[in-house]
Write a protein that binds this DNA or RNA. Structure first.
Lengths: 110, 110
DNA sequence: CTAGAGATATTGGGTATCCGATATATATAA
DNA sequence: TTATATATATCGGATACCCAATATCTCTAG
């Protein structure tokens, strides 16, 4: 019951951070910089983390979840599907970034 | 290619980032700034995240895991138990920070 | 049309994270 | 001693994460 209607008039900052954890957050952040398709995204994450590419069983369910949340949309481009943020996704990312920065304040060297 | 040397230069750099995910990482970071006991830690995290304090079922298993990894030690002080980093924990944190910064590069505003 | 390659998607399984509830331990107050 | 408050700890369940294997889809080569 995470309907749009907002059972909570008072808040509204509730479901903005339920983006399937850190992976969803990272995906949203990367897509905000540049729309990408799944494998491209997996490659970018692999480079950042210094690990192997995420398995299809990891990346696609994550994308599906973000799509079902209304945070991203997909557009087929030949063989691939390019994902990009919706307005809702941008808004959610913005709020999540604030929270992220506050949570990990002091970790990044200045 | 970008695998920096291949898969396995022996060992040592293996368990350095397996600190039970982001919570373990955050705990290690906070303890590196100041030794604290469990509830104090939960309070600090609550402030940073802007949420309620972590449940005992979250904070204590996380601390137990870090202790079993040899990253923290505990010392009873009256009613509380104060946790602090070991040398191994400091080293692990340092490496994890590098990975964290690389993974989330660009999230923090400059 | 048929193969092959690459991208996308689902399934099944295992581990990790986290919470709510419950239980135990310690210190203080009565 | 008993009662209370706080801290620590564990248990059961829900969700997130991640992979290997498998299947489907789309384009291109032949």
């Amino acid at each position: 019951m995470r309907g749009e209607g907002g059972d909570r008039p008072g808040e509204g900052g509730e479901d903005c951070c339920d983006m399937r954890g850190m992976l969803g957050f990272l995906i949203l952040f990367l897509l905000s910089k540049k729309p990408m398709h799944g494998q491209e995204l997996a490659g970018e994450i692999a480079i950042r983390k210094g690990e192997k590419k995420l398995s299809p069983g990891t990346i696609y369910p994550a994308l599906k979840g973000l799509r079902e949340l209304g945070f991203i949309v997909e557009e087929r481009d030949g063989k691939t599907i390019v994902y990009s943020l919706t307005d809702k996704g941008e808004k959610a990312l913005k709020l999540a970034k604030i929270k992220f920065i506050k949570t990990f304040f002091g970790i990044f060297p200045e």
